[in-house]
């Protein structure tokens, strides 16, 4: 009955498509988190940045009646918002966790305040006719059964997220900027000693993370839903940070981890049809997050031990061969 229905739901093309759609709002900020983490100044205000962009996008598109102006406004607001964090942290010397937390709180309260000012509603922007970004139907692929449903017909952010993963991967490992960014994150003194401007590099990293988070936010309010809801990011900015670590601080790993959380999210939607308390269902993504982090922690630890062992063995054999010489 109900249970069978759920199973059918999970193993359907529609479910996989919904996973992709839901994951986008995690993949984009997770990439932003990754970049700042590798640069050594992790952006914990992804959550607030998403919220600000989601809000700005809706308001701008609603009042201008232009979707693209809305998107542009959302992106700019996200970059500006993260520039605030970068300025506080890098130029005024504020602790990044404190500054980030403050910005998150500011975003949460500020968006509701402005929403009320502009629309007279404290909960949602539904009275405002805001825009929704177009979806893309991929020729040929859309006609293939199953695959067409999975891959085609998504909004542009979904495709953008995967294109950006590819680009960010390239940026981090195949450009000067990426190498410098990782060097600054790992050993700022060494990086500075060869003339890399650590502060500027970190600033750029935080701005890029703001850009990525803003797309994540816009995806929520101008694609996934068609309005702004109070606190609609619902912790996604933080889950994105968890994905960075679960993904081993690598681009594709981070994206996979973000998709894993996306699956949990989609699953909780599906299980909502069963007769289980909705709170329990909604807790699933978070429970999976914790579980995944524990598993990851254990794995990293055993890897570390393994690595040390191998290193020592190698050193020993090297010492032996040198002795024989």
């Amino acid at each position: 009955m109900n249970f069978n229905l759920v199973l059918q739901g999970i193993f359907s093309a529609l479910f996989i498509a919904s996973v992709l759609r839901i994951s986008t709002a995690l993949v984009l900020p997770a990439l932003g988190g990754l970049i700042t983490d590798l640069a050594g100044s992790i952006n914990i205000s992804l959550e607030g940045t998403m919220l600000v962009s989601a809000f700005t996008g809706v308001i701008v598109s609603g009042f201008s009646h232009n979707v693209w102006l809305g998107v542009l406004g959302g992106i700019l607001s996200g970059i500006l918002f993260s520039a605030l964090l970068a300025y506080f942290h890098l130029y005024l010397g504020t602790n990044i966790i404190l500054a980030g937390t403050a910005l998150n709180i500011l975003a949460s309260g500020g968006t509701v305040f402005l929403l009320f000012m502009l629309t007279g509603d404290k909960g949602s922007s539904s009275t405002l006719a805001s825009g929704v970004v177009p979806t893309v139907n991929i020729p040929f692929i859309q006609d293939i059964p199953f695959l067409g449903t999975v891959l085609s017909g998504h909004n542009i952010f979904v495709y953008g997220a995967f294109l950006l993963t590819f680009l960010i991967n390239k940026l981090l490992y195949n450009t000067k900027f990426g190498v410098h960014l990782r060097a600054v994150g790992e050993d700022p003194v060494a990086a500075t000693s060869v003339g890399i401007n650590a502060r500027r590099t970190k600033f750029m990293a935080i701005l890029i993370s703001g850009f990525l988070a803003s797309l994540g936010g816009l995806n929520l309010s101008m694609a996934y839903l068609s309005s702004f809801q109070r606190d609609m990011t619902a912790g996604r900015g933080f889950i994105a940070l968890a994905a960075v670590y679960l993904g081993g601080r690598k681009p594709w790993g981070t994206v996979l981890a973000a998709i894993l959380f996306g699956i949990a999210d989609a699953l909780s939607n599906q299980l909502g049809t069963l007769n289980i308390p909705s709170q329990l269902v909604q807790a699933i993504p978070y429970a999976i997050t914790i579980l995944a982090l524990v598993v990851n922690g254990i794995r990293t630890r055993s890897q570390l031990i393994e690595q040390t062992k191998r290193f020592q063995e190698r050193e020993l054999s090297r010492a032996n061969t040198e002795e024989q010489k």
Partner: peptide, 8 residues
């Protein structure tokens, strides 16, 4: 003190 990035 070596000015090197360990993972590079």
């Amino acid at each position: 003190n070596f000015m090197q990035v360990p993972s590079f």
